[in-house]
Nucleic acid binder design. Structure first.
Length: 409
DNA sequence: TCTGGGGTCCTAGGACCC
DNA sequence: TCTGGGGTCCTAGGACCC
């Protein structure tokens, strides 16, 4: 298989190029720079067509920020200050107070995401969705896909995307998904990189292990402790040794990944497994003291997740809740029903039972509701969950660990 | 000044069945 | 009489990704 990995770069203000900019935070509508321009210059029109005319000094800075938001992404100039994705905004503000802070705008991202994916689908039909700004493409059977090792097709896509959206796009080309994704990062932004099997030693092995999609902070820490820093270090380790230290499955995968091996297909269709809604409070809430507020938030989350299910046409039979305490420890509880539902009242009721099984001695910072084990609302399974499981047992009743405080919830 | 929200997949133990 | 083994489902937690 030949794979592309393409990701678009979403910064749309040319006047901010080269400046430290972070996107993230949240809950602050006054961050809307177009709104500020309408106030500053009400005599003329300010729409998305005029983004490039907004003076740099009108954009809000990190320094004034108050809240619990995190950074979604940052420009390279901002990263030079040590600011990066997933970092708390308050911490970023300390590192680089003058950086420009842009709010996340999911409605706009969805729009550009759709355009980006539609353009690629027109050119190459086998596309795997990896979130708003990323896709894998299997171009093995695309006519002309092999010209210049894929570079011609990659350039064509880049041009089509930029013409339609004004966005830049980085593309990696390789024999598989693992290498295509790594290739795409070698030449950002708006680059094209091609990696062949023979290039793994020279182009991949010098990279840090973290660059492999699937090695996160925990695995990396463990690898570092073993003196394994680069992918080359990893490739030198015996398969058996890795399996002993990292588990049979993960160890074998590490070994394959370090050698650039990956046989996962590009998956064009998939069904959702779960849907959830969660929220972090502006201030930690106390189960007793803030009982009414928590109850309202909980009800709203149940309504939201039910609406999501109904809008997308799914029902689920595992209802779960998630709590995060003030010490950042999380717990989850769930319960599986003998039928499927997308009913907010039922989700709320079962979720309430799950809550009672949690020991609430600390203040809460997050509450979430999840519905899993999804099937399509119009499927046979949804109408008669026992039809495909005539021998189904009565699920074991959840442990009756009731906690008095939770009753107040 | 800590640490969002929405997901997927894996592991591991216990229940239960054959 | 102290003792199977395989398979699936349920639950909880955690790693990881975008």
């Amino acid at each position: 298989m030949d794979a592309f990995y393409a990701s678009v770069e979403l910064l749309r203000y040319p006047q901010l190029k080269g400046l430290p900019v972070v996107i993230g935070g949240g809950r602050r509508r006054e961050d809307d720079v177009l709104g500020r321009m309408r106030l500053l210059q009400p005599d003329r029109e300010w729409t998305a067509d005029h983004l490039s005319e907004i003076p740099v000094d009108v954009f809000p800075r990190l320094s004034g920020y108050v809240g619990r938001g995190v950074i979604t992404t940052a420009t390279y100039a901002a990263r030079a200050f040590g600011v990066g994705s997933a970092m708390g905004v308050m911490k970023a503000a300390k590192l680089c107070p003058d950086a420009i802070l842009l709010p996340v705008d999911f409605a706009q991202y969805r729009h550009y995401s759709r355009t980006f994916k539609d353009i690629v689908l027109d050119i190459a039909p086998l596309v795997e969705d990896r979130g708003v700004d990323e896709i894998y493409i299997d171009f093995t059977d695309v006519p002309g896909g092999q010209r210049e090792g894929g570079r011609v097709l990659a350039r064509l896509m880049q041009k089509a995307i930029t013409d339609a959206t004004g966005l830049t796009c980085s593309i990696g080309v390789a024999p598989n998904k693992l290498l295509a994704k790594m290739a795409s990062e070698l030449n950002k932004p708006n680059g094209i990189s091609i990696i062949h099997t023979d290039d793994v030693e020279s182009k991949i092995w010098p990279l840090a292990c973290r660059k492999i999609n699937g090695i996160g902070p925990k695995a990396d820490e463990k690898l570092q402790a073993q003196g394994i820093h680069t992918i080359g270090d990893l490739a030198l380790k015996e398969r058996d040794w890795l399996m002993q230290h990292f588990g049979k499955s993960y160890g074998a995968w590490l070994h394959d990944a370090a050698h650039g091996l990956d046989d996962r297909p590009v998956v064009t269709e998939s069904e959702p497994v779960s849907m959830s809604r969660e929220t972090t409070f502006e201030k930690d809430l106390h189960v007793v003291h803030d009982r009414a507020a928590l109850g309202d938030i909980f009800t709203r989350l149940c309504q939201q997740v039910a609406a999501d299910l109904q809008r997308k046409g799914y029902v689920g039979k595992t209802i779960g809740i998630k709590l995060r305490f003030d010490n950042f420890k999380s717990v989850t509880r769930d319960q599986t029903l003998d039928h499927y539902t997308a009913n907010p009242l039922e989700i709320r009721q079962i979720g309430g039972l799950c809550l009672k099984r949690v020991d609430m001695k600390r203040r809460l910072r997050l509450l979430g509701v999840r519905v899993g084990a999804l099937v399509k609302a119009d499927s046979d399974e949804a109408k008669n969950p026992l039809s495909s499981a005539l021998t189904a047992r009565e699920p074991a009743p959840p442990k009756e660990t009731r906690h008095e405080q939770a009753d107040l919830f």
